[in-house]
C-alpha cells in the first residue's frame, strides 16, 4: 500500500527499575516493518522479545525513542487514547489464550466489538464471520472449558481479528499446544497473512513456528542480532 512502514522504531530503549537498579531490556533498537509482513521474533529468555511486542502493541511505553505504528507515535498518546487505539488497531493472541472462562466462544469474540459503535446485528455478523474464518462454526455456544487447547486458541484468534485490526501480535501462540494443534494454528496465521494481508508480529521459541514467518528477527540481550527475509514456506 503506502510508502509509510507499518511499524517504525527509532532509538528505542526500554529499561525497568528494580529498587535503585536499572535493568536495560532493549537498547537503541531500530526497526522498520512493512505492511503485510509476517514477522517472527526469536531469542533466548530475557532477550526482550515480549517487551518489544508490548511496545508495538501499545501495552508498554519506551523509556526513550519513538514507536510509530500505522503512522501514530504511541509514546505521545495518553493512556485513554492508547487503550482506544489498541481496541481498533491491534489484535492480541496470547500463549494461554486468555479467554474469559464464563463467556461462550461467541461472547468472547464479541468482547472487542463492545467497544465499537456497531449494532447488535452487525456485531453478530462480524463474530460469525470471524468464527467461520478460524473454522469454528457451530461452536458459538461452547464455553472455553468445553473446547480443546487448539480450539481455544482459534477462538482467541477470532477475537483478535473480529475488529479487523491493522496489526496482529502473538506472544508464543503455539507455546501451550501439541504439535498437531500448533501446526493448525500456524497455518491459520499464515492464511491471515496471505489472504487478508495482515501485518503479524509473533514471538516464538519454536524454530518450526518461526519458519512460517516472512521475516525472522533475532534478539539477544536487548539488541537485534539477526534480520532475515525468509522464503515463504507453504505448509506441507
Amino acid at each position: 500500500m503506502g510508502q509509510e512502514p507499518a511499524i517504525a522504531l527509532r532509538g528505542v530503549c526500554k529499561e525497568y527499575r528494580r529498587e535503585q537498579i536499572k535493568i536495560p531490556v532493549l537498547t537503541d533498537l531500530k526497526l522498520t516493518v512493512d505492511e503485510g509482513e509476517f514477522l517472527a521474533l526469536m531469542g533466548p529468555s530475557g532477550s526482550g522479545k515480549t517487551t518489544l511486542l508490548n511496545l508495538l502493541a501499545g501495552l508498554d511505553r519506551p523509556t526513550t525513542g519513538e514507536v510509530v505504528v500505522h503512522g501514530q507515535d504511541l509514546a505521545q498518546m495518553s493512556e485513554g487514547q492508547i487503550a482506544r487505539w489498541r481496541s481498533r488497531n491491534v489484535g492480541f493472541i496470547f500463549q494461554l489464550y486468555n479467554l474469559i472462562p464464563v463467556l461462550t466462544a461467541f461472547e468472547n469474540v464479541e468482547m472487542p466489538l463492545l467497544l465499537t459503535s456497531l449494532s447488535k446485528r452487525q456485531r453478530r455478523e462480524n463474530v460469525r464471520t470471524a468464527l467461520r474464518v478460524v473454522g469454528l462454526e457451530g461452536r458459538e455456544d461452547h464455553f472455553p472449558r468445553q473446547l480443546s487447547g487448539g480450539q481455544e486458541q482459534r477462538v482467541a484468534i477470532a477475537r483478535a481479528i473480529v475488529t479487523d485490526p491493522y496489526l496482529l501480535v502473538a506472544d508464543e501462540p503455539t507455546g501451550d499446544l501439541d504439535r498437531q494443534s500448533a501446526e493448525e494454528i500456524l497455518e491459520l496465521m499464515e492464511q491471515l497473512h496471505r489472504e487478508f494481508q495482515k501485518t503479524i508480529v509473533m514471538v516464538t521459541h519454536d524454530p518450526i513456528a518461526a519458519r512460517r514467518a516472512s521475516r525472522l528477527l533475532k534478539l539477544d540481550k536487548g539488541k537485534l542480532v539477526g534480520d532475515v527475509i525468509q522464503a515463504q514456506e507453504v505448509a506441507s
Binding site: 502493541a57 501495552l59 493512556e79 485513554g80 487503550a83 482506544r84 489498541r86 481496541s87 481498533r88 492480541f92 496470547f94 494461554l96 486468555n98 474469559i100 472462562p101 468482547m111 472487542p112 467497544l115 477475537r159
Partner: peptide
C-alpha cells in the same frame, strides 16, 4: 487478574 489484564489489553478502560 489475568482476565483483567486481558480486558485492558483488548481496550477496555480503567
Amino acid at each position: 487478574t489475568r482476565e483483567i489484564g486481558t480486558l485492558r489489553a483488548l481496550g477496555f478502560s480503567r
